[in-house]
Amino acid sequence: MSQARTIRFSIFRFDPQDPHDKPKMVNYEVTEAPGMTVFIALNMLREQQDPSLQFDFVCRAGICGSCAMVINGKPTLACRTLTANYPKGDIVLMPLPGFELIGDLSVNTGKFMRELSERLQLWLQPNSLDSDIHRMEQPMDPEEAAKLYELERCVECGVCVSACATKQMRETFVGAVGMMKIARFELDSRDTRTADDFYHVIGNQDGVFGCMTLLGCQDACPKDLPHMTQIAYLRRKMAMTNPNRIL
């Protein structure tokens, strides 16, 4: 076996609650082990070198979406990023931009997503009449169910938000995550909202017409969701919904 190499980490450090602290990059070194991920390396750093280092991991299996951060300029999930992917052994870690910073690499994506969900009403709004849980369920086209699941795979990691220059420039823009969820409910035959209802939510500059199609969302999404197709679909749909059409 070849000799284990040293991975050099450069990590953003800042404690916003400490009035004397200033943002800085701090360097650390870790000896690489086979199959090492950024998750494993960060935990080693915290346990052996600096117990104050803040970061968020939950499932550590690429499922929960907690650990998104910017790794060498790419926002992605740290838990499933192998250090072996970086042949030079230099890894720069920054927190996701566009979210409230809790400290170091930890950002408050949860608060952001909850507010977004409330703002856009991102939940199923079914016809309440056909919901007798003791009786046979309503059939659904198997194809539709499969398509819905495709769109439902979003893990709210926040990568699309930080990869979007539009969102970075305009605070109020709903971002890809919001539009993808709207697309998911728009597709759902159980949802009673009409195109008009959705127009009121995203048919504006902060919604689908504010999107400049930079596609950072699609290129960075760790779940490979079809942002381009879905947002384009919504845009066409919303453009046709607009009651006072010119062109």
């Binding site: 919901s131 659904m140 169910a145």
Partner: peptide
């Protein structure tokens, strides 16, 4: 079975029989 059916009303896209 009640829980499964309730969840269908809450938005779960259960895989369906073809």
């Amino acid at each position: 079975p009640k829980a499964v059916r309730e969840l269908a009303n809450w938005g779960v896209p259960w895989t369906r029989v073809t």
